[in-house]
Design a protein around this nucleic acid. Structure first.
Lengths: 408, 408
DNA sequence: CGCCTTTCGTTCACCCGCACAACAAATCCG
DNA sequence: CGGATTTGTTGTGCGGGTGAACGAAAGGCG
């Protein structure tokens, strides 16, 4: 990955950076990998890999293990490389519409500790939410080894996030507009660590691509059903961001010009058919339960007919998305995974009916491979990104002894 | 550009390749550039740039010039680097629905020679078209200096092209399905050169990004109006291809569920509103002139009202595209540029009405900076791509003395 | 059970390619 | 005309990946 900044030349420091980062990326992805595999994957010399691993070991991010018992043919067994026991970690924040989930995530993607708290419906003031989140962060960071460096915080937001500076331009369900949530959380924490913000669907896509149902698939879309509907797009193995970072707003694709009024001001947006409010209305679920629609759907035992039209609408909308982006995989996240389990047939049929044959033949619908943690783990991934871009620099600026610093 | 193949390591040969290619890319883009500018742009040392330029000079692709007369401040004037007089070239083919345009294009993007021929309406047999194209290629190559190497052929196709092998999966207006047009042209030519095929809108986007209205803009969309309607997407400076290469098929986004039947089998696709047939019907233009709708529109003097609804439909569709891809620039190509000139106001208004505020605020609509040559020049660009990825290898395998070889 | 084969780790010499410093050259400016 | 500025040129240095040689650790086979 890491396309070099276009137009720039490459010097040898950049080579070292890139190779160190790539080794680390592989270890992060596989958890445990042999040096022999690394040479094969990266196409570098044995001795080079040895040196790279040695440097990462001296940085305290990986450990070498004696050859694992698992054998594979003849020859001397290769030394293993795995993540260090007390290695760097990040804090991931999944800001939902009704609650915030915060986790300490180790390099490697394991959720070591997690905490959650409700958010007042309608979001509440941003500084209030920021204070809640800061409290959760303190809690999950508390138990971390003092020697372990904190690399940064990744925050998922259910709304439009400007990529240049992480400003939350619009989060309808939190009733936020132009909120600098990263700064708010940092202020509440009282420390200065790198903070990355991004849209929830984008992060769901990233996580499913790196560690979920989309491993090895370079073109995938994650559709997030989370009151509103949005899409995160991975194309060519890279996040599709768009000029401002707002790409993937598929909730307002036109669907039924004679349909319902959407909160965006138009009529018949896709979201008015497959959004949480629409589905709640279809199955007679009270407004107050809309934010937990996934759970409601999981326990739904009403007439199948009530959801048939919704399934069809989902499939039709997916057809547009498949035509426009030509993904190999579409992951249905949030309550859409629950919905898909109920009306799979209608969705598949509607998709097949409206999508063009060529993009249709290579696409698969699937449930998230990471369950309901896709978005949370995606937040961890963006926080880890600087580490892969330049391990030495990222570890150099990382915060150690975080527990003590946050005590105040 | 040239993201390294992900997961791979970088060795020093790759560094040299990348740097040579990047220098060449800059010369290709600017036509004439000083070594001092190259050092600034690429962030490399003066001596390194000098060496790179020297190597490119010895490869015969660039020439160094005495400092140009144009001065800029104090200091010793920097030596210029420009394209070699007898440098490498490519053949670009723009396969339209009614005619094929073929050009010999030099490194630097200049069309040195061009030729065109009509194609029977409905496409005709692929081998027939291939033979026509081969004849045009012979004609434009004839005048090339014998010493100049031919790097390859780039072909634009108005349809879905599979990116893995260049197979034309579907070209509705040529009535082709699963045609291996690259192989057909090569067979008709009787020589073996690298051939690249791609969708016309994708190539329009590429050309406008590299040499047209979108220079310096990393997120843009080119909408091609060419009987059907398609989009080519550049995102993050890279072509959005999708899993199979079919990304950008926006012609069949749903628009009016109660609308007209589309040839794809659905009802009310966007294309049924803004496609050439729909516009022709709206202005009372005979079916036979549909393929030259752009010219018809340029001379259109009928009532403005007849096109108002079409303009609105165009704007609404663009809003969906802006929401989904968040481009900074949308270039309206083909007959859409003529249409836009007539109903700019309706289009702008409709776009502003339906697009979300955040992506809307940074987007601009524009006409092609390359006129009607966008697609043709895009075909040249893909044929040049291997040269930038690895100048030494590309020139090593390039064909010289092509005129003589093609004589038979 | 011993030996061969295979695969991998380790070491060291090598080389490629970029950086850097020093000096010369060319231009602008006061 | 001389200093300041910017660039070209040259030679040296160094980082870092390569490759060969050798030893080590396994499996396989007679």
């Amino acid at each position: 990955m890491t396309a070099q900044r276009r137009g720039l030349g490459t010097n040898q420091e950049a080579v070292r950076r890139h190779n160190l980062g790539t080794v680390l990326r592989h270890v992060h992805g596989a958890g445990q990998i042999s040096r022999a595999q690394l040479t094969a994957l990266m196409g570098l010399n044995r001795s080079t890999i040895a040196d790279l691993v040695l440097e990462l070991e001296s940085l305290g991010v990986v450990e070498q293990t004696v050859p694992s018992g698992v054998r594979s043919g003849a020859g001397r067994p290769s030394a293993g490389v795995r993540l260090a026991g007390v290695g760097p970690y990040v804090v991931a924040v999944d800001l939902g519409v009704d609650r915030a989930v915060v986790a300490r995530v180790a390099l490697g993607g394991e959720v070591v500790e997690r905490a959650a708290a409700p958010i007042p419906v309608g979001g509440g003031e941003a500084w209030q939410v920021g204070s809640t989140v800061a409290g959760l962060i303190r809690r999950v960071v508390e138990g971390a080894p003092a020697a372990a460096p904190l690399l940064g915080v990744g925050i998922s937001v259910p709304g439009l996030v400007r990529r240049s500076d992480g400003l939350v331009r619009l989060a309808p369900n939190l009733e936020w507009q132009d909120v600098s949530f990263g700064a708010i959380v940092l202020a509440a924490l009282g420390v200065d660590v790198p903070v990355q913000l991004a849209n929830d669907a984008d992060l769901g896509a990233l996580a499913e691509h790196r560690r979920g149902a989309g491993v090895g698939i370079d073109d995938l879309i994650y559709i997030s059903g989370n009151v509103g509907v949005g899409a995160g797009v991975i194309t060519g193995g890279v996040r599709l961001e768009g000029a401002g970072g707002y790409a993937g707003e598929v909730g307002h694709l036109p669907f039924a010009p004679e349909g319902r009024l959407c909160h965006c001001g138009n009529i018949g947006c896709w979201e008015t058919e497959v959004g949480a409010h629409a589905i709640a209305a279809a199955i007679g679920c009270p407004e107050s339960d809309v934010v937990t629609l996934g759970d409601v759907l999981d326990e739904y035992a009403g007439p199948h007919r009530a959801l048939g039209a919704t399934g069809k609408a989902l499939g039709y909308g997916l057809a547009s998305i498949v035509n426009a982006f030509n993904p190999r995989l579409v992951v249905l996240g949030g309550y859409l995974s629950s919905l898909y389990a109920l009306v799979r047939h209608e969705v598949d049929d509607a998709l097949a009916e409206r999508a063009l044959p060529a993009p249709l033949e290579s696409v698969t619908l699937s449930l998230p491979g990471l369950g309901s943690d896709s978005v949370l783990l995606g937040a961890a991934e963006i926080a880890l990104e600087p580490l892969f871009a330049d391990p030495v620099a990222a570890l150099g600026t990382a915060l150690v002894d975080v527990g003590a610093r946050l005590a105040g």
